Amino acid sequence: MEKRLTHFSSGSGCGCKIHPAKLEEILKDVRSDVQSFPNLLVGNEASDDASVLKINDEWALVQTVDFFTPIVDDPYVFGQIAAANALSDVYAMGGKPLMANALLCWPVEELPAEQASKVLEGAKSVCDKASIPLAGGHSINIKEIAFGLSVTGTVHPQKILKNTGAVVGDVLFLTKPLGTGILSTALKRGKLNENGYEALLRVATELNTIGAELVAINGVHAVTDVTGFGLYGHLIEMCKASEVSAEVYFDKVPKIAEAVQYIQEFILPDNTFRNWNSYAQFIDCPLPETFAWLNDPQTNGGLLFAVAEHAVDTLLNTFQKHGTTQFLLEPIGRILPKDEKIIYVKR
């Protein structure tokens, strides 16, 4: 019987991220020294999606690395999802990817090399779609599987999209539905049906190329992608960095319909609870049904961004040209003045 990739991972996709509080403890003494490196335009000081280094007045390099444990058992699809997720960090900064290198952790004595090769083939197919080379990489022999990419891109130094800068009155949009964490957990537990699997692949393999188009819209103030810390976690990071609060309209938040039945069966990722425990103190929410969705750790989730109201029509035109579904063209919330709580949820 062929061994399942997900049996070689204690976590799943971006849900295997280190606990936010523990990560803060790890990073507290190694924040970016922007004084010593004035060309470092974005470092790790604000939990942004990628680092950015200015080359000259026209060019800046965008650099990221992202890898995780298997979210699916098909090695080719795992490679696709991991590659799309890593590329998302560059798109979230408004950048265009240039090249990628692979990071492969593989138990060579327990799983055939052919499966590892399929992972790389899947990643290459996504890099081909993004019109960049998968140029090289590094591998290690280890018991737990992990795969991802280091990606280099470019952006104009004056057009970087950060997770800071949200302004009171801005409208919030999310470009993908939530629920990949729920579906991937159902898969790992052997419960996911065919429709759920197709929905998981549809969302998790989609490239966030819309990010590279947002830089042309005057009024897009803050952008991030929603991954392992869920919508709550990434919106809180944006609000903290921007010194604002936000309200979320739960009924407007896009959700993967196929995930509903698994919520009803209480099939939720362990990190759903981790996320809530990390962020509950910052949230005012009277709606218990939001717990599973807004804490759900996403893998290659959508872009979350704050945009000025005067730019919404331009934004929607860009969405429609990009082929975004009509359901995702509604705002999911609004930026508020800084308050006692960071997020207020209502219908």
Rank of each mutant, 00 (worst) to 15 (best):
K3I: 02
L5T: 11
H7T: 13
S10T: 10
G13Q: 07
K17L: 10
R31I: 05
S32T: 11
V34I: 14
Q35G: 10
F37I: 10
A46W: 01
A50W: 00
S51D: 05
F67Q: 05
F68G: 13
I71W: 00
D73C: 10
D74C: 07
L87I: 10
S88A: 15
D89A: 14
Y91F: 15
K96P: 02
N101G: 06
N101M: 09
A102M: 07
L104M: 11
A116R: 04
A116D: 04
S117P: 01
S125R: 11
D128W: 03
K129H: 06
N141T: 11
I142Q: 05
E144Y: 04
L149A: 04
V151S: 09
P157Q: 09
T180S: 14
L183Q: 07
A186P: 08
K188S: 09
K191F: 05
A204S: 15
I210V: 14
G211W: 05
E213Y: 06
T227M: 11
Y232K: 10
A241N: 15
V248M: 09
V253K: 08
I263S: 07
Q264D: 13
Q264E: 15
D270T: 06
T272G: 02
F273W: 08
F273C: 02
N277T: 00
P297F: 01
A306V: 05
A306P: 10
V312Y: 00
T314D: 13
L315S: 09
Q320T: 13
K321G: 14
E330C: 05
P331Y: 09
L336C: 13
